[in-house]
Design a protein around this nucleic acid. Structure first.
Lengths: 340, 340
DNA sequence: TTGTAGGCGTTATCAG
DNA sequence: CTGATAACGCCTACAA
């Protein structure tokens, strides 16, 4: 009886098969150079012993893990899920494994997770948005771990990114609303501190106002966490202002769904009494009623491209190349025309 | 100039501080036994060098990673998100890090991910549901990695579990519907193969039918993937049967939201023309209209308890103890009373 | 309190 | 094609 209390190692397999560890290693890594006969012997040994290579040891010796890490702000809603799924699929196609962590929108947590993932040997990292302390990028440089940012395109940022321009996307939506006659815009945004996506979306609305000859300073966005109930309450706050807005632009579809719920709660009809818009175009946008007019983001394409770019950075040891995706407006009926 | 092209190691820190690696190691692991003076020296060395311990090396030497792995069927919707968030928070409170992977409901992918996580040194694993090949449990035993199953309570299963009884939960809902006069039940289920939750929910409905003196065999659930559009199409299929159901029980809230959309598309009023129910009580259930009558699952409590139990299993090297959570019915108006 | 040294499981170099 | 053997970075008795 062999010891059943400790996982089998390369050594065990080698002994069992009557060859050296080097040979077993070669077989496992398919580096050719192994005769047909020994191949079957080794394979059998592996199977009967139930051997699995130890990543840690492998990593120490080879410095590669074929693992990519991703840290997303939240798993509590579907915003990042779809793109991440595509990211993972593309990664798998190339033989890489994805490890995900969620920071709950806390910069501190994100920083720890970055260190964890790096220390665990992630070959590359996917992060959401550009906003974070420069020291983090310094650290990543020192550790020589390639980073790619998604969900936000910004050429001027320190890290390469695959995403869309949050500002112009939101600006286009705001312009559409303005062109439909709305003049009093309310906005429910996510917390903008440490979140360039949220911030740029606000900027987009301001730019649109300016373009229509209105004062950008009149926009005072309500910043709340990205939960349905927050959107619900925020809508109530906005509507109880002295001059309530005729349209409420929300930072994302989740907030918009909440706003919709809030409107219903207050007995307001959407879009007759107040128009509401979202951002992201997740499935949620299509099941609420009225369905949300929103900004469609090509989530899956973003995920796939990000995976390909990051893998290229890792394998070719080169700097990342940013890629800008286009968003489109989707009109679904949660916005009504307004006269004057 | 030191070499700037490779991350600093324990050795570097030791040299810089003028002590041995053992001392630095002791300092890092806070094993006491380090004089105040050397402490500051080491700390400074670590900071100026920007040192981060290498997990792989650490794992090889110490066999512990303080990391827990979790594999969920999907990230595409919020079903698992909430519980997982709580799981992660509880883990963090105890000094553990969570690594998540999604299998996209593919047993093959799940198996690979289990191996990956184990090989990476996960101290313990959280899996969803009991259904999987026995070899996987054998493998886990051999590797001595504790596993806990969530989202499904089953004393008779091989692995310990923290969850609820999917059958009785669904049975209670079906009984409620029956007691409201419905006699023709339609069901949209997730794919039940390899998914004990889905299977047990179907069983629950059958048990309820039996209890009301109806033939359980008359229930022919439509099995579809867990997407909104699948629920939408499935509802159409059900309603175009010779004798359409008066109520459609859905395997989860996502399918129910889809069914709701399908009903709207067909010009059917819910619940007047057809009643619809969900399962899970995720936020989605409250934003669709009508809001969904569904089964409330204590997601956060489940996540927290799972974390505590799994950590106990890891630290005390003991078998897991199953824990059963209670679910409750939430009546929100998507079911109407039916005469006869 | 501190240092020395062996070992953890792989990979990879270099001889056979 | 195959086999020794030296790293890889850290932890932890065992000594001092």
């Amino acid at each position: 009886m062999a010891d059943a209390d400790t996982p089998p190692t390369l050594d065990d397999v080698a002994h069992y098969a009557g060859v050296s560890t080097a040979t077993v290693s070669r077989f496992i890594n398919k580096s050719g150079k192994v005769s047909k006969r020994t191949q079957v012997r080794v394979e059998e040994a592996i199977n009967t012993l139930g051997y699995t290579p130890n990543f840690a040891a492998r990593f120490m010796a080879a410095k590669r893990t074929f693992t990519i890490g991703a840290i997303i702000p939240t798993m509590e809603n579907a915003i990042f899920a779809r793109g991440l799924q595509a990211f993972q699929e593309a990664l798998n196609d190339h033989g890489y494994t994805l490890l995900v962590s969620s920071s709950a929108y806390k910069p501190q947590a994100e920083e720890e997770q970055i260190r964890t993932l790096v220390a665990r040997g992630a070959d590359g990292l996917l992060l959401i948005g550009h906003d974070r302390k420069p020291e983090i990028y310094d650290y990543l440089d020192r550790q020589q771990v390639p980073v790619l940012v998604a969900w936000s395109y910004d050429e001027t940022a320190r890290a390469p990114s695959v995403g869309f321009d949050n500002k112009t996307a939101m600006q286009a939506l705001a312009e559409r609303v303005l062109s439909m006659g709305h003049r009093h815009i309310g906005m429910i945004s996510g917390i903008s501190e440490g979140n360039d996506r949220a911030r740029r979306r606000i900027e987009g609305v301001r730019a649109a106002l300016q373009g229509f000859g209105l004062d950008p300073a009149t926009l005072s966005p309500l910043e709340v966490p990205y939960n349905i109930s927050d959107g619900d309450l925020a809508l109530e706050t906005l509507m109880s202002r002295p001059t309530p807005p005729s349209v409420v632009l929300c930072g994302n579809d989740v907030l918009a769904a909440g706003a919709l719920r809030g409107a219903k709660r207050l007995g307001l009809d959407v879009p007759r009494d107040v128009s509401i818009t979202g951002f992201d175009d997740i499935e949620l946008a299509q099941v609420v009623s009225p369905a949300l007019t929103t900004v469609h983001v090509p989530h899956r394409e973003m995920g796939r491209r990000a995976a390909e770019e990051l893998i290229a950075m890792v394998q070719e040891k080169r700097a990342g190349i940013s890629f800008k995706l286009e968003t489109t407006l989707v009109d679904r009926g949660s916005v009504a025309r307004r006269d004057g």
